[in-house]
């Protein structure tokens, strides 16, 4: 009986592993949402383009912003390489694909810009509301997870990572409570809100 149970467990585990490998291969786990843009300061998209794809120290993980820039650059270079190739009939053969690529790149960079813009609004609002306690330890960090509704009202506040100092945690919670509503949410597109701004983690880290 004992061994039988082991067999069942082992085969179930094996099934799970194989199933997950299979699902991974067919791209089941791939999701737009899995890229987690870490934004701490204004990321000026244009400046990054000018300087080329150099690692910005503010961005810890390569985020969506980065990918978007790369796409723009590659489309541009394709343009240069391929646009002069006019074939004998006088029409540009890959015009259609070029256009769609351009559009896609434009859309994703527009999304990034939108995210950046509203993220920065939110950061400045919270920073204005936050009164940092004095005589606290250095290097305190706490994370607060908030849930917003589409009107921008914060409907749920959770301290997900405590700093260990109650005064610090409390000041952070109080800052988020004081903000209460992000009034500019009305300007955010519904899809963007659902994808990005519904659940937000706010990390208070004054040591940076």
């Amino acid at each position: 009986m004992q061994t039988k149970q082991h067999y069942i467990q082992a085969s179930f585990l094996s099934f799970l592993i194989h199933a997950s490998i299979f699902l991974y291969l067919i791209g089941f786990f791939y999701s737009e949402k899995q890229v987690r843009p870490i934004l701490s300061k204004a990321v000026n998209v244009n400046i990054i383009v000018d300087e080329g794809p150099k690692e910005d120290p503010i961005i810890k993980k390569p985020s969506k912003v980065f990918k978007a820039e790369e796409v723009i650059i590659s489309t541009k270079s394709e343009n240069i390489n391929e646009v002069p190739k006019i074939n004998e009939t006088g029409s540009i053969t890959n015009l259609q694909s070029l256009l769609s690529e351009e559009l896609e790149a434009f859309n994703s960079s527009a999304l990034e810009e939108e995210i950046n813009k509203y993220s920065n609004y939110m950061i400045s609002l919270i920073e204005a509301a936050w009164i940092k306690p004095k005589n606290i330890q250095d290097n305190l960090i706490c994370d607060i997870k908030i849930k917003t509704n589409q009107a921008g009202r914060i409907i749920d506040i959770n301290l997900t990572k405590s700093s260990g100092n109650i005064r610090f945690d409390n000041s952070a919670l109080q800052a988020v409570k004081r903000v209460e509503t992000f009034s500019f949410f009305a300007d955010i597109r519904k899809e963007t809100y659902e994808d990005v701004f519904q659940n937000i983690v706010i990390s208070f880290n004054p040591s940076k």
């Binding site: 799970l16 786990f29 899995q34 934004l39 009164i131 706010i202 880290n205």
Partner: peptide
């Protein structure tokens, strides 16, 4: 335990939130 681990890993891959970092606060009293 291993089974549990796999299930725990999956939601992490799918759901990720926007992270905002607050580095400055006011020193002034209310």
């Amino acid at each position: 335990m291993k089974k549990l681990l796999i299930f725990l890993l999956i939601p992490n891959l799918i759901f990720a939130e926007l992270l905002l970092e607050i580095t400055k606060g006011s020193d002034n009293p209310y």
